[in-house]
Write a protein that binds this DNA or RNA. Structure first.
Lengths: 347, 347
DNA sequence: TTGTAGGCGTTATCAC
DNA sequence: GTGATAACGCCTACAA
C-alpha cells in the first residue's frame, strides 16, 4: 500500500465525542450557524482549539457544492504587474474566506488549456484569466464549466463571459500620438516575433494606426525574440540599431524592459536620449522609473485591475438576485506618462 | 437558497451510463489503472471527450486521502526571487499531476498563521514555507499536520522538519569581509527597523561579526522602514546621509532595492560611487545589474532553490521505503558578485 | 437547540 | 475485466 495513511487525523467525529455531542452540533458551532446554545458552542470551540482540529474542507465542499476556490491564471508570476494584481485579488477574495487557486501559463495557450482543465477539477466557483487567445478546447471547457469566466487585461474581441481590462491597441495608439505630438517622426516599434501573443499584436496595431493617421510611415517595425521581451533583447537591438533602420528618431517598445535595454545600448554608443533618439515603453515598470533618463510609458494599474476583478467576482458569487444585471465589460483606465526619455528640446 | 446549483454538472455516473458500464469501470479507464479492456477504455475515453467530462477531484481526494496539493507560502509574490522560485517549484510539481496551493504572507507571522490554517483545510500533502519566524500556533499546526514541512531560504535555528536554504548571516558576513578586503573601513549597514523580520537580523549579525573580526567598528547601523525595503527608503537615506554618519565610505544594504536608492541619491548630490562611497546590496535584483555602476551583491539562485525543494517534496511523497533516510537539511550555495559599485581605485 | 438519516462524487475492496 | 457495496468527512434536510 503505497498510500500514506494519516494515522490519526482528527475528524469532526472525534471532536463531537470529546464534547459529548453529535457531529452536526460541532459542524454548526464551527460555522456560527445560529442554532447552537452559547454554552455548547463555547465548549465545542474550546475542544476544537485544544485538539487543534482543522476541518477538512474537501469533504465540506463536496457536501455544499461550494469549493471556495477562485481560479486565477496569469502568464507569469515573474512580472510585477501580474504579481501585484494577484496579490490584490487574493487579499479581497481571502477576506470572504475563499481561496485563490493560482497558475501561470508561461504565455502558452497549450499550457493554459492544461491548467484550465486541472483547475476545473477543483470545481472553482469562478475563473479569472488573462485574455491572450485561447485554444478551442479551453473555450469549450470554460463555457461548459457553468461558472463565471472573467477575462483580464486586454479586452477580447469575443469575450466568453465577463471582461476587466483595457484596450492595448488604444493605449498604444495614444502613446504613439503623444510621441508624434512631441515631434518625433521616424518612430520605430519594437516587439516580439511571436504572433500568438495577441497583446503584442494589439499594441502594434495601435502604433500603426496612429502613424498612418498622422501621415507617417509605420514601416520601422523591429521584431525579435519571444514574449516576455527582456532587457537583453532590447540591448541587442540597441547595439545593432543601424542594421535595422538608420533614420530612427524614436523607439516605442512593447514593454519597459526592452526600452531600458535599447536605451542603455544606445547611450553606451554615444547616442543621446532623448535628444538623438526618444524612447518609450509600456507598463510603468520600476526599471523605467529609475533609469536616467526615466522612460516614458503607458501606465497600467494592476491594483485597480485586481480590485475591480475581485469586486466583480464577489458580486457574481453573492447569490444576489441582481447577478443577471452585472455589467459584463469593465474598463480600467490607462494613462500616458511622459518622462525624460522623450523630453525633446524643442526643434 | 443562496447557493448556486450547477444544474447539470456531468458526473462519472453520466459517463458510465452513456458508455453502458459502471462508474468503477469509468474510474479505472480514466486512471489508466490496468484492468480495463482496450475496447472499453477507448469507448469510455471517447465519451469523456465528447461530454467534456471533468472529474471532480475533491470527491476523488476524499476517497483516496490524497489531495494532490502542495501548499507553498512566500512573503510576497511581488519579488522576483519568490516569483521565480514558485514558478520553478510549480513546474516540477505539476509534472507529477499535483498542484501548488499558493499564498503570500506579506511578511507577517499572523497572516502566515491564518494562511497555514486555511491551507491545512485543503489537506495538502506537503507544505513549503519561508522561514522567518512563526507564531506558536503556526508551529503547532504544522507539527500536527502529519505532513512534511519544508522551511525555505534562511536556515532556521530550530527547524520543524526539512530545510532548503542558506545562511543569511554567513552570506552577509562574506560580503562584509569582501568589502573590507576591497579597502573599505567605515562600512555602514542599512536595514529595516522591524525585528520581526529575522532575515534582516541575520544579515545584520553577519555584518557585525565580520566588522568586529576585522577590528572595525560596526556602529554605523542605519535602520528605516519595514520590510520589504524599497528604493524610496534607500533614496531617503542617501539624501540625508550626513544626518546619519558623516564618515561613511561604504554602505552595505539589506537588499539591492535600497542600495539602488542610496546610490541614486548620493550620485545626485555629487558623491562618486564607488570612489567616494562604495555600495553593496543583497539579492542580485535586476535593478542592481543594470544600474550604473552596477551594484555588488550577494547572489541567490531562486531556480536552484525551487528545484531542490521540488525534488525534496517529490522524494518525500514518493512513498518510497527510503523516505526515512531523506536528508533533512539542504543547503543552496550563495555567491558574492563584485561589481562596479565597489570597484575602488586602489588607495 | 439538538440529533438522525442520507447523500455529495469518487475510489478501495472484494466478489464474480 | 467488470460490478456491487461501502467508505471518505462533511453538510442538507428533516424530525424530535
Amino acid at each position: 500500500m503505497s498510500r500514506r495513511d494519516k494515522p490519526n487525523m482528527t475528524t469532526m467525529e472525534d471532536v463531537a465525542q470529546a464534547a459529548g455531542v453529535s457531529r452536526m452540533t460541532v459542524s454548526r458551532a464551527l460555522r456560527e450557524e445560529g442554532a447552537v446554545s452559547t454554552r455548547t458552542r463555547e465548549k465545542i470551540l474550546g475542544i476544537v482549539r485544544e485538539m487543534n482540529y482543522v476541518p477538512d474542507q474537501m469533504a465540506g465542499s463536496l457536501s455544499t457544492k461550494r469549493s471556495g476556490f477562485v481560479a486565477t491564471l496569469v502568464p507569469s508570476l515573474n512580472n510585477v504587474h501580474y504579481a501585484e494584481m494577484v496579490q490584490t485579488l487574493t487579499q479581497h477574495i481571502e477576506s470572504t474566506g475563499m481561496q485563490i487557486l493560482l497558475g501561470h501559463t508561461d504565455y502558452s495557450m497549450n499550457r493554459e488549456e492544461r491548467l484550465v482543465e486541472s483547475m476545473l477539477k477543483r470545481r472553482p466557483e469562478a475563473i479569472a484569466l488573462q485574455y491572450d487567445g485561447h485554444t478551442k478546447r479551453t473555450i469549450k471547457l470554460l463555457k461548459q464549466s457553468q461558472i463565471p469566466v472573467l477575462e483580464l487585461w486586454d479586452i477580447p474581441p469575443k469575450p466568453i463571459g465577463y471582461t476587466v481590462g483595457f484596450s492595448n491597441e488604444l493605449a498604444s495608439r495614444n502613446m504613439t500620438e503623444k510621441l508624434i505630438e512631441l515631434g518625433y517622426k521616424n518612430i520605430a516599434f519594437l516587439c516580439e516575433t511571436n504572433d500568438e501573443w495577441t497583446r503584442g499584436a494589439s499594441r502594434r496595431n495601435g502604433y500603426r494606426k496612429a502613424m498612418e493617421a498622422a501621415g507617417l510611415s509605420a514601416h520601422r517595425m523591429i521584431r525579435i525574440g519571444t514574449p516576455p521581451m527582456s532587457i537583453k533583447d532590447g540591448y541587442f537591438v540597441g547595439k545593432n540599431i543601424k542594421q535595422y533602420y538608420d533614420d530612427i528618431d524614436c523607439i516605442f517598445c512593447v514593454s519597459d524592459s526592452p526600452a531600458f535595454g535599447v536605451m542603455s545600448a544606445l547611450q553606451e554608443d554615444g547616442v543621446k536620449v532623448p535628444d538623438d533618439v526618444g524612447i518609450a515603453g509600456f507598463g510603468n515598470f520600476e526599471i523605467g522609473r529609475f533609469s536616467s533618463p526615466s522612460i516614458s510609458t503607458v501606465v497600467v494599474d494592476p491594483v485597480k485591475l485586481g480590485q475591480t476583478t475581485a469586486k466583480l467576482v464577489l458580486d457574481l458569487l453573492s447569490g444576489d438576485k441582481a447577478v443577471g444585471k452585472v455589467k459584463r465589460k469593465h474598463v480600467v483606465e490607462l494613462s500616458i506618462e511622459v518622462r525624460g526619455s522623450t523630453q525633446r528640446k524643442s526643434d
